[in-house]
Every structure is written in C-alpha cells, then in structure tokens.
Design a protein around this nucleic acid. Structure first.
Lengths: 128, 128
DNA sequence: CCTTGACTTGGAGTCAACTCCAAGTATTAT
DNA sequence: ATAATACTTGGAGTTGACTCCAAGTCAAGG
C-alpha cells in the first residue's frame, strides 16, 4: 500500500506519516526499488493504533517508547506492559476530570435554560 | 489579591495569567495606582473557571469568545449558551472516544497479563 | 533614603506536533 | 519517449499555548 492510500484510509496526512516514520514512531516501512514506501498490513495496523492512541491524548514520546520496545522483542514484554498500564492510568484520570467538567458545563447550560438570569446573577454563571 | 497569590492559589504561572489577560481571556483586571494587578473575587472565579475548562481541552479561542460575549451583557445570553452547548457536545465526543481507547488499552493489558504471548502473536497485541 | 524583592512591559524564545516547500526521482498514461 | 502525476528528501515554517527575558518601576523593611 502506498502512502497516499494509507493517508486516505486512516485520514492522516502523508506528511504526518512520513513525520512519524522519521521520529521512530513508525519504523521499518518497506520501500520499492525506487525508494517509494510500501506499507504492509502490519504497518497499517500500527498506523491505526497510533492514530487511536494519539486521539486519546497519549504522547508521541510514550508511543515511540512502546514501539521501540516492541521491536526489541519478547524480552521487553514487561516494560511494554508497564507503559500500557501507566498510560491507561493517565488516560483514566483525564477522562474523570473531563467528566467532571462536562457535568459543570451541563449545570451552566441549565442556568441558561431557565430564562431567569438577571444581570447581577451573571457572576453565578461564571462561578458554577 | 496580587498575581503571585492567584498564581499559587490556582497553580497557574503568573506568566500564564498575564498571557491570558493580554489575549483577552481574562480582561479588566484592576490595577493599583502603581499599575500592579489586583485580582477581585470575580477575577479569581474566572481564573478557576478557565483553568477547569482548559484542563478539559476547550480551546482558548472559544473561551475568549465566551468571556467576550459575557462582557457585552445580557443581550449575548443566547450566543453564550450556544457556545456552551457546542463545547459540551465536543467535550462529550472526546470523552466517548477516550473511553473506547481506555477499553482497548484494558484489552491489551489483559493480553499481557495472560503470560501466553509468543512472538508470533505480537501482531495481535498491536492490532487489538 | 536605600536596598531588596516583587511587579511591570513588550517582545523574543520554546515546545510539541505537525505542515509546507523546493528540488529532484519514480511511475503511469498516452 | 515524453508529459503529467506521485513520490522522495532535508530542512524550514506554522500553530497553539505558553514561558522566559531585559530593562525598568514599585513597595516594604531597616
């Protein structure tokens, strides 16, 4: 699969794909004789995985580390698992924080919904 | 309240507070005769609010718009409510996406937990 | 009054994560 | 074979959100 197809399939710009490769996040992509990238099925899986994890806010740094350990084989199973657990924890915390903020927004919207907000109560809207 | 206190109270650097003021996210902070910032209770509420919303990933741009409408008074109630609803929606979508990723991470961790991963199954870990 | 430390400004610098560019090479359609 | 299109590279530029800096002003203690 050429870069343009991968780009379209996963809605990631070709520049970003090349960038990921450059920084070691997507290593070992095969090339044709002419030097043109040819993504395997496995490469595509990684692309999809990275896109998903980046979408959830995992840092590129931690993903590079994960991928790099992966490439070093079975002896890194433990370290890889630890990264996953760490990142899982951080993600969960972010989600919890965001849910609290969501609830806060809901309350604010309720205030606005009840058309009962005189100017002097505006402060309350900001506070809550 | 002086900037250093506000900075400490909300764990936001004084530079960031000044930056927020400059870009119109935290307008109308009072000054002493000498020109030194003196945050009111209401200013502090805004600081806290902004910190919370930024923490959940709302863009500074949308927050500036909200604050700016707020300052224009009651006639902007509808527009403000719309911003809140839009942002709430986006936030919810992000949360949902992140929860899916959390579940995916959990599955991956489970794989690692069951010490049954031979080298040729590594692909599966990447895929799932 | 003088020193010390906190505050002020405008503007420059940093960081992560892309995104774009120019010059060149490869592939494909005619 | 040639033109048009897609790909390559290294490196520069951009964006959002800060973060730092220098030079100057202000305020509190001795």
């Amino acid at each position: 699969m050429k870069i343009a197809e991968v780009s379209q399939k996963f809605d990631i710009s070709a520049d970003t794909l090349r960038y990921y490769e450059r920084i070691g996040l997507l290593p070992g992509v095969n090339r044709s004789e002419g030097g043109i990238r040819d993504y395997t099925e496995e490469d595509c899986n990684w692309v999809e995985f990275i896109k998903c994890m980046r979408g959830a806010g995992l840092s590129i740094e931690s993903l590079i580390e994960y991928v790099s350990l992966f490439q070093q084989g079975e002896k890194t199973l433990k370290a890889r698992k630890e990264i996953l657990i760490d990142q899982r924890e951080e993600l969960e915390n972010r989600i919890i924080e965001m849910q609290e903020t969501l609830e806060r927004l809901d309350k604010k919207i309720e205030y606005y919904e009840s058309h009962l907000i005189p100017a002097q109560d505006m402060l309350v809207i900001a506070e809550n």
